[in-house]
Design a protein around this nucleic acid. Structure first.
Lengths: 226, 226
DNA sequence: CAACGTACTATACGCTGTACGTTATAGGCA
DNA sequence: TGCCTATAACGTACAGCGTATAGTACGTTG
């Protein structure tokens, strides 16, 4: 019987195939059976290398996290923090399914620790105490996660013509009497949602307040974005 | 043939049953068939009232949004904004599946507009121009979404003893040489993740920076949380 | 009383993740 | 060289999913 030769599979090959499928078909259409078919193998062959689907998700997530660049050196700490946050956002935009992987599974593993170490190092270098550094790390991380996930979601919606038309229609049908501000700002809301500017706007709010807290600044000397 | 009497179903009844199932079994175990079984009805009966599962999701989400209290009046705008954000977080904590509903579907519908109207009203009242109000609304909304989703995710992880032990183990196995800060702050990270304090910390950063931007404050007069 | 629209049922299809038992092969050892 | 064993990959099966399609009984209306 023509059987697949042995040892052609590996955890790494499976993870890369899985990631390629997520990129091309999207995370919602991703399935173990599709990965197996792509590899010319039965679905159960994957279970030699991963205990279940979630473990494969974790492997993909950790691989993506390993692509994050190191923290830049020789810059003021707010610029370093901004760079870390922008890197993560950029990676999420490049691999939209990463938003789902980050939100639906706890952070664990070597690569996630590496990323945390980088940002925590920046914050400790800025003079924050342990508790504040930990809180700040969580705040920045969740801001990046939330705002970029939202951006990705919006972009996906805009790509589907039906959903997009329906969304516009439901917005335009809102009563200007009941929701005067939403209606009058509808254009601004649609225009400003997402994008680098929206992201940097919120990020700079956080960094500005952090600089104040660090006591390095007076109001007049708040650093503006690079 | 003993057939279910007619007109016992309604969109509202189905939506409430669906919500009850999400509360009790969790969003991942939620299925149309379970809703139908709970109502003593065939799965296809639901399709008389909802075109598909996503429409039912939207109905549940809109119902939850309708539970949000109105914006308090007679307070300074930062306190109003804080109240709106805290209300949303509180609702998400009370109904953990709401995080999933908000993140996976676009915001649309009457109730979402009502919530947006409230926060935008606060921001316009603070003197922000249209673009800044829109950007600020998005920033605050995504911060609440991201940070609360993360908190819910962490809390769920902590509730599952196996996953929690595994997470602690993977953290403790990290090399103190490679990740000195993560290891030394492990306790802080575990202790400070989630909770009102963590949420308010980030929210106050944003509100502080916004007050600066609004020009109502000098550094010495930044409002502290109520 | 008949006809019609509607609320619900029945059946079925093509998926999903994965538990279980089997089989063929590659590598180590005699 | 030839066998043994560990294991990589297979096949089958199950329980479940969303939903397309077609059919049936009922309440209302003419």
């Amino acid at each position: 019987m023509a059987r697949t030769p042995r040892n052609t599979l590996s955890a790494d090959l499976i993870m890369r195939t899985a990631m390629a499928l997520m990129e091309s078909k999207g995370i919602s259409a991703f399935s173990l059976r599709a990965v197996a078919a792509e590899l010319g193998v039965g679905p159960m062959a994957l279970y030699t290398y991963f205990r279940n689907k979630d473990e494969l998700y974790d492997a993909v997530r950790d691989h993506l996290m390993s692509l994050l660049p190191p923290v830049p050196t020789g810059e003021p700490w707010p610029d370093q923090a901004r760079a870390v946050c922008r890197s993560l956002r950029s990676l999420m935009l490049q691999h939209p399914f990463l938003a789902h992987l980050l939100a639906s599974r706890p952070l664990s593993g070597h690569e996630s620790a590496r990323v945390a170490e980088g940002l925590l190092g920046v914050l400790c270098g800025a003079g924050f105490d342990a508790e504040t550094a930990a809180r700040t790390h969580t705040t920045l991380f969740t801001y990046v996660l939330g705002s970029t996930s939202w951006e990705i979601q919006m972009a996906a919606e805009r790509r589907d013509p039906d959903a997009w038309r329906q969304l516009r229609a439901s917005m335009e049908s809102l009563s200007a009497q009941e929701f005067p501000i939403v209606v009058s700002l509808a254009h601004e809301l649609a225009r400003t949602t997402g994008g680098d500017e929206q992201f940097d706007y919120g990020l700079d709010l956080l960094l500005t307040a952090l600089q104040l807290k660090a006591g390095h600044l007076t109001t007049e000397r708040v650093r503006t974005p690079s």
